[in-house]
Amino acid sequence: MSDMHSTPGPREPARPGNDNGMSRRSFLRLSGGATAFAGVAALTAGLAPLRELASFTSLEKFLQKHYKEMTPREMERVLDRIAREVERQYGMRPHVRDLKPMDGVEFVYALNLSRCIGCRRCVHACVAENNQSGDPALEYIRVVKMPQGTFDLTKGEHNYEPESVPEEGYFYMPVQCQQCANPPCVKVCPVRATWQEPDGITVIDYDWCIGCRYCQAACPYFARRFNFKKPVIPKERLNPNMSYLGNRPREVGVVEKCHFCIQRTRAGRYPACLEVCPVGARKFGNVLDPESEISYILREKRVFTFILKEEQGTLPRFFYYLDK
């Protein structure tokens, strides 16, 4: 910029009789043009990978409204679109529904720490039920092996692989979304793509999430997972019983998490992790029904919320309890 004050080359009035100056200037123009051309070429080549995004979104998807703003008819059309997409991608016509919360129902989960043997069956049943991506393998439940006598999670082990479980001197603590009554993840979402339903399940509208991962940063339970890649579900593993807010296949770049198997529980059934648990450590039900097993447990057992995070005031709907 030393010639801030000087006239730039091309604008300078030609000095008569200076052929050399003329040719230099034309060379300057040539090189300027070449630079512009090469720059545009580099830009085009650099952006070429974006061609693969042709099928990334469609006008239909782009104009889709937020879950809460959709009319029943619009929702029907969206469900139909999802069914079509799944059929095209996986060759199987799924049963996609939008199940609504039931009146007088608030779901609560309880997990018996004195029963859990850390076999991780729940983790894999969840993956299969909820159509989670296999690459990278995405799991909602994390089982932490803890030495007996402490709840200090930094002493826990996540990657234990012994011959058989349980191991002497340890207990096992499966952690998944705690469905907080005071959820920090919902508060931080800048687009309100995640919210708490009347039955206590915190859900995500996968078609509204912008993937900023603020909720992941806010969650004190490491419950939320982000689709860092386009999810890949083996065809033979696809669960065709799907729900809009639940286990329909997700897209790349959105957050997902445990939703108490909304496609099962809102149809009256138990979650998949509960049914697979070989020791019956997992209990689930309607806390507003005094006859339910969950009410019985909360009345009769030594129940506590996530021991390290009680001070967070998140009021989980997921309780840990002990028999004795």
Partner: peptide, 21 residues
Amino acid sequence: NAYANQAVAGLATTGLQDQVP
């Protein structure tokens, strides 16, 4: 160009993961 790659392949192209989002 790097961003185009990220847009196509997802944020897996970064060093981020669920633990450090």
